[in-house]
Amino acid sequence: MKRIDKTSSLIPQVERGTLIKIFVDGIEIEAYKGETVATALLSAGITTFRLSHKHKKPRGLYCGMGICYECLVTINGIHAQRACITPVEEGMQIETCKELEL
């Protein structure tokens, strides 16, 4: 999972937002302002965002637009936040695979 560096007519060049640091399960990773939590996690190679309730199976991004609730993570201590529509912020603490009852 990498950020796109190739440019083309379909995907013209962009200048990303400022580089910030966030923490995922205690480990520092880099992200650009304007990215979502899901983007930052995927870029760092993290694809399991939570475990399913019943069978504890890995789940991650699915719909990408806030309607399936598969991408839930804990953000700054608040459970069950949708990673796909939450923008990253400097110093954000993200926890994956937590108990996620709302």
Binding site: M1, K2, R3, I4, I11, V14, R16, E35, T36, T39, L42, S43, T47, T48, F49, S52, K57, P58, R59, G60, L61, Y62, C63, G64, M65, E70, C84
Partner: peptide, 24 residues
């Protein structure tokens, strides 16, 4: 289809066109 790495077209287009990352 519930495995991480299986995503919808909508998700793929957001990641590629707006977030500018390769989903795989």
């Amino acid at each position: 289809w519930t495995l991480p790495g299986v995503i919808t077209c909508g998700a793929a287009l957001i990641l590629l066109k707006s977030q500018r990352i390769k989903p795989g």
